[in-house]
Structures are given as structure tokens and as C-alpha cells.
């Protein structure tokens, strides 16, 4: 179970700090809902460990994550954009998610190839992210996140601005992932996304 317990954070010139408090079970998806500027991305950054809370705690299976560095947390994330290293090709981007030094076994290579096939990006391995469309980039980012097999998946507007085909494919992938027991924290403006994926809604 993921428990966000009275997590308090404020930017230096912010008057009233945010206070996040909720729990989610594995296999469930919680949608974070709120106007822009209501702290959705901040929450994501706190969970991922990119920001440090002023107080409160994040517990996963009753263990505190607060002291853990981003790379030590059981978390992987996909944001609306900037998910890929622009100077590295698709294969390398995914490979670094599997092993941070790109020391890949032949099974890993195979996994990448088959993964690309399964998201409809056959033969795109050598392309640079800049040569892909927004939808294609998000598919790569999501594929990497899935191959990382972390129990918690953070999604910050992952489908915003994509065409309907890409949107459909990614939604299917996410539903499958949820069914496999992955816990999803979803921040989305999109009503349909929320309806389709979320089991509960947390309002900010």
C-alpha cells in the first residue's frame, strides 16, 4: 500500500503550503484532480523524490521512502513531455531504463525489440526522439516505464496533446499494466482518462 501521510510542501514565496494525504492499494489507480497550479506536478515530484517535503512522509508497504534517493524508490514516471534523452536513440533511451550503464543481456535486447513491436514502433530503435511524433515519443517513454517493472507508476498528463490513435493505444497499455497489479498515480485534466483508468479521485 502507498500511503501519503500529511506531506507538506511550499515553494519559497508561497503563502499557504500544500498538504497531501491519501492512500492507494496495488493494482489501483488514483486520479489527482485539480486546476492548474493546484500542486499536481509538485505532488508527482515529491513522490519521485525530485523535491523534498517540509514534513510528512511517504510509505510504501509500511516503509518510509523519504530518505531514499529517486533511484532507490520503487517508482517510475512518465510526464507530459521531456521523458527522453534527446541525444540518445530510442533503443538507448529504453536500455538505460533497464540498466543504468546500458549493460544489456541479449534477453534485454530482445525485450526492447519486442516491446517496440508491441507498441507499434517496429524498427524505430535507432531513431532519435526528435525524429518521432509526440505520440510515438510517449509510447517509447511508457514502454521504458513498463519495462522497468516498478510497482508504482506516476503519470503526469501522459496523454495530453496526443492524437486519438495514440491515446487509445496508451490507454490500453495502462489498463493492462493496472491489471498486472501496478499502482498508478494519475494526474490528468481529461475526464475520459479519469473515468477509464481511475478507481478513486483525490481532489486538490
Amino acid at each position: 500500500m502507498l500511503e501519503v501521510r500529511n506531506l507538506v510542501f511550499a515553494y519559497p514565496d508561497q503563502e499557504s503550503p500544500w498538504n497531501f494525504h491519501f492512500t492507494v492499494e496495488p493494482g489501483q489507480c488514483i486520479a489527482i484532480h485539480g486546476a492548474s497550479g493546484s500542486g499536481k506536478s509538485t505532488l508527482m515530484n515529491l513522490l519521485a523524490g525530485f523535491l523534498e517535503p517540509q514534513s510528512g512522509d511517504i510509505l510504501w508497504q509500511d516503509e518510509s521512502l523519504r530518505q531514499r534517493a529517486p533511484w532507490q524508490r520503487p517508482i517510475t514516471s512518465v510526464f507530459q513531455e521531456h521523458n527522453l534523452f534527446e541525444h540518445l536513440n530510442v533503443e538507448t533511451n529504453i536500455g538505460l531504463g533497464i540498466h543504468p550503464g546500458l549493460k544489456l543481456t541479449s534477453e534485454d535486447q530482445q525485450a526492447i525489440e519486442q516491446g517496440l513491436d508491441s507498441v507499434g514502433l517496429e524498427g524505430f530503435g535507432k531513431r532519435l526522439p526528435g525524429d518521432l511524433s509526440g505520440g510515438q515519443r510517449q509510447r517509447v517513454a511508457l514502454l521504458r516505464a513498463l519495462l522497468r517493472q516498478k510497482p508504482i507508476l506516476l503519470l503526469d498528463e501522459p496523454l495530453t496533446g496526443l492524437d486519438s490513435d495514440a491515446r487509445h493505444l496508451l490507454r490500453q497499455l495502462l489498463l493492462e499494466e493496472k491489471a498486472r497489479g501496478t499502482l498508478i498515480v494519475l494526474a490528468s485534466h481529461d475526464k475520459e482518462d479519469r473515468k477509464l483508468l481511475a478507481d478513486s479521485v483525490h481532489r486538490l
Binding site: 519521485a48 533511484w71 517510475t76 514516471s77 521531456h82 534523452f85 546500458l102
Partner: peptide
């Protein structure tokens, strides 16, 4: 190295020598 790339690398554990090799060296 932009903050998005840095955060990504942090999450993926691309640190130390690996970060140098894959993120800095090519640029």
C-alpha cells in the same frame, strides 16, 4: 543538462560514471 534530463537520470539511476558516459560525453 536540463533539469528534466537530470531528473530522468536520477530516477533511472544513471549516475556517476554512467551519467558521464551516456549523458555528458555525447554532448
Amino acid at each position: 543538462l536540463d533539469s528534466a534530463s537530470r531528473q530522468q537520470a536520477d530516477q533511472l539511476g544513471v549516475l556517476g560514471w554512467y551519467r558521464w558516459r551516456w549523458l555528458h560525453w555525447p554532448r
